[in-house]
Amino acid sequence: MAVLGLGLTTASGVLVKGIRNANDTITVTGASTERITSDYVDWSVEVTQSGPTQQASYQGLQPAVEKTVAFLKAQGIQPHELELDSVKSEKEIVRDPRTGELRSTVWTTKQAILIGSWDVDRIYKISGRIGQLIGQGVPLTINEPAYTYTKLAEKRVDMLAKATRDARNRARAIAGQAGSSIGAITNADTGTFQITVPNSTETADFGSYNTSTIDKDITAVMAVTFRVD
């Protein structure tokens, strides 16, 4: 994993155990990095309204929710891509810190609008426009879209195979300098997968999964031990 700390835009870095005789082994870190494009997006916005009573806050919330849903549909969100979350209501009581006398009661009611879509580019564009509603007086909390790649399981298999080939090529080059050749694999350890923003050098011990960008870089690392013949 020290290799990743140096930035694996192109795989590099080798760990070698001495080549002395035919029973020796060589351990090499191979890596593979590819650019992938997200194919699904989850996004949500939350409408919030406050009032002196629970009923008042709820009644104020509904027109704002309806206006937000109408905006999203007008922008191209399909009915099956949109879902209303349950309504949540909270009460805040403000008292005089000296006398404990009740000063005010405020009810806050919230409802999230959840969007899930395979049309990643369309949601990206809409998320940049929905701020218009705030200017029209709609009390919104706008969350960042979460972009994901749904074929990751298949991609991992392919990436590990490429990382293993990369390790074999490195091992051959190193062994060749000692006049030896590479034999069978005796051990293979899979490192963590790093899915990051494009061209990032950031890593995490337990792997990472960036959801903030549509395009991402995925890096797979394999520590492979070969017999030296």
Rank of each mutant, 00 (worst) to 15 (best):
D119N: 11
V65H: 04
T186H: 01
S127P: 11
A175N: 01
M222K: 11
G116S: 07
Q62R: 14
Q78K: 15
K110R: 12
S208P: 12
I26K: 01
G137D: 08
A2S: 10
S180N: 04
S117I: 04
S86R: 12
A153K: 10
I19C: 01
E154R: 04
G51R: 00
L8E: 06
I195K: 04
R20E: 12
L61M: 11
A146K: 14
L4M: 12
Q49A: 15
G116C: 01
L140T: 03
D119C: 07
D39P: 11
S32R: 07
Q194M: 09
W118E: 10
V41E: 09
R103S: 05
G51I: 07
A153H: 05
F226M: 02
W118S: 12
V138Y: 03
L102Y: 09
I77Q: 07
T225D: 00
P97A: 06
A220R: 02
V228W: 02
R20G: 07
S12I: 08
T25Q: 07
I93T: 13
E101H: 14
F226K: 00
N210K: 05
K125F: 10
D215P: 08
E154I: 03
S86D: 15
L114Y: 03
W43Q: 10
L133T: 04
N199I: 08
M1F: 08
F226H: 00
A22P: 02
L152W: 05
Y149A: 02
T225E: 05
D166R: 03
T25G: 06
Y124F: 08
A70V: 11
G13W: 01
G183T: 10
H80N: 14
D215A: 12
S89K: 09
K73F: 09
V3S: 11
Y209W: 04
I115E: 02
T192K: 10
V221I: 10
V138Q: 02
F206Q: 13
V157S: 12
A56S: 14
D158P: 01
I134N: 09
A31R: 09
T150I: 07
T186E: 10
D39I: 09
E101W: 11
